[in-house]
Each structure stands twice: as structure tokens, then as C-alpha cells.
């Protein structure tokens, strides 16, 4: 069998449920921790971002309208699919980041558990962030948190899988759709995770994944008028100020997070207050 030709994987983007190459035709090199060549993923351009936003916008109405219970089921399904492909993720994490097998396995386990944890939040977050408000009149007054629309995110460099899941899962939990730029140095986990998503009953366009350079894509994410909010947790701190300025045109909500907590879900929700007359 030694003369068999290797079947190597082409790492492509994940947009609208499909795996297209970048429109620009560019790639860049990903190296292992020891400096050996690993893969040539796509170097996404602003036009790939534009296409991804169109897909995310189109997917929002359906995903937002799905019941919280259904969104929870799908998030749980993603966790199931990830669990079934542990070995591949462990290998890729070890290869690119150079961590020990034990650490890589822990990252994958934490990722699966984190997805299950977010799955549980889908039908509870409205009770946590919403309220019934006392008002001086014959009304019930509710505040209900709703999804914002299309949220863009920049995943942290490491941990390449767990950090990625901590960025996308809270955004889609509430019914937003997302366009995310994966870790530049370690994009393999994110792109393999796209294959998990493709088999998880997640509607096309809810999660769209790009690979490429943060400093190239971030300004376009910030200025895009059809992106409602932005998670810049993975963006170097020195770029935060100018990104916030660029995002001011359409009053984009721009956040950065350090940990996984329900606040990450609530940050990408908008409060809607409803007055309902009583006793009339």
C-alpha cells in the first residue's frame, strides 16, 4: 500500500451550507507547531464576507422564528456530531498548535460540553433577561429579549476549537445568524467543525465560516451596514478602537468577551417592550 497516493483535504469556506472556495482564489499556508507544512486554507476576501452576510441575512427570519426548543435540539445535535468525530479534532489541534494529546482531548471535551450548555440556554434566556414590569395603568408590560439579526464575530487564535464555539454558540442561541472569521494560525478545527454543522440539521446560512486575515476582514465587518453587531474577542486589542469607530455608522453593537457566560448570549439580544391592555 506504500505507493498509494495521499488523499488530502482541501480546506474551503463554509457559506450558506456549501463549501465554496474564496472568490479571490487566494490561499495561505498553515504550518504545524514545528514549522512543517499542514494545509493551504482559503484567504477570504471582503467579497466572501459580503456573500456570507447575504446568506446570513436570508437565514435570519427562519432561524429567529424557529422555537427556542428547536434551536436547543439543533445545538445539541451539533454536540452529538462533534462527539462522534473527536479523534479528528484531537489530531488537528495537536498538529497545528503543538499541545499534548491530553490537552487537545480536554479542549474537545470542553467544546462538546459547552455546546450542550448553550443548547440548554435557548429556552431559558428569555426568562433570565426578560421581565414583567410594574406600570401605573391597566396594562401588562413585558420586556422580551429578541435576536438582533446578523452578527459577525472574530474567533480567538487559541483555543482554536473551544474559542470558536464560544464565539458562535451564544450568538445563534438566541436566534441570530453569524458570519465568523476563524483563527488565522489554526483554522483547521473551524473548517472541520463546518462539516459537523453540515450534518446537524442546522439551516443553511445560520453559521457562515471564513478563514483569512483579521486585519483585512475586520474593517469590512465593522463598516458593513447589514451586520447588526460584532464580537471582536479574537481581534488584537490595538485594533479595537478603530473597529469601534468604523462600526459607528449603523450603531453596531461591538463587544469583546473573556469568558463563557449567559451575558454573552444577552449581549447580542435586543429588548422589546410590549404593552398589553387588561381589564378593558
Amino acid at each position: 500500500m506504500s505507493n498509494r497516493i495521499d488523499v488530502k483535504k482541501t480546506y474551503k469556506l463554509y457559506i450558506n451550507g456549501a463549501f465554496p472556495r474564496t472568490e479571490s482564489g487566494r490561499t495561505y499556508e498553515v504550518k504545524s507547531a514545528k514549522g512543517a507544512f499542514v494545509a493551504n486554507p482559503c484567504l477570504a476576501s471582503r467579497k466572501d464576507l459580503r456573500d456570507a452576510v447575504v446568506a446570513a441575512r436570508a437565514a435570519h427570519a427562519g432561524w429567529n422564528k424557529a422555537t427556542a426548543y428547536n434551536r436547543g435540539q439543533i445545538l445539541y445535535r451539533i454536540a452529538e456530531m462533534l462527539e462522534g468525530r473527536r479523534a479528528q479534532f484531537v489530531d488537528e489541534i495537536m498538529q497545528v498548535t503543538g499541545v499534548t494529546k491530553m490537552k487537545a482531548e480536554k479542549e474537545v471535551t470542553d467544546s462538546v460540553d459547552r455546546l450542550v450548555w448553550y443548547a440548554g440556554w435557548t429556552d431559558k434566556i428569555a426568562s433570565l433577561a426578560g421581565s414583567t414590569n410594574p406600570v401605573a395603568g391597566p396594562f401588562y408590560n413585558f420586556t422580551i429579549p429578541e435576536s438582533m439579526g446578523v452578527v459577525a464575530a472574530i474567533a480567538p487564535e487559541t483555543p482554536s476549537l473551544l474559542g470558536f464555539i464560544d464565539a458562535v454558540a451564544p450568538i445563534i442561541t438566541s436566534g441570530n445568524t453569524v458570519v465568523i472569521l476563524a483563527s488565522t494560525k489554526a483554522p483547521l478545527s473551524a473548517m472541520t467543525f463546518a462539516e459537523v454543522l453540515a450534518t446537524s440539521d442546522l439551516p443553511h446560512g445560520v453559521i457562515n465560516i471564513l478563514t483569512g486575515k483579521k486585519e483585512e476582514i475586520a474593517p469590512w465587518m465593522a463598516s458593513h451596514m447589514d451586520i447588526d453587531a460584532l464580537d471582536i474577542s479574537g481581534l488584537p486589542a490595538k485594533l479595537h478602537a478603530e473597529t469601534k469607530v468604523a462600526g459607528a455608522e449603523n450603531l453596531k453593537r461591538i463587544h469583546s468577551f473573556k469568558s463563557a457566560d449567559p451575558g454573552r448570549i444577552i449581549a447580542f439580544m435586543e429588548a422589546k417592550t410590549v404593552w398589553h391592555p387588561i381589564g378593558l
Partner: peptide, 9 residues
């Protein structure tokens, strides 16, 4: 304007 617009506009 130099940035991508939205159907909202």
C-alpha cells in the same frame, strides 16, 4: 460611501 449597504436603507 465605501462600505457595504443593507436592504434596510
Amino acid at each position: 460611501e465605501g462600505y457595504y449597504s443593507s436592504p434596510q436603507y
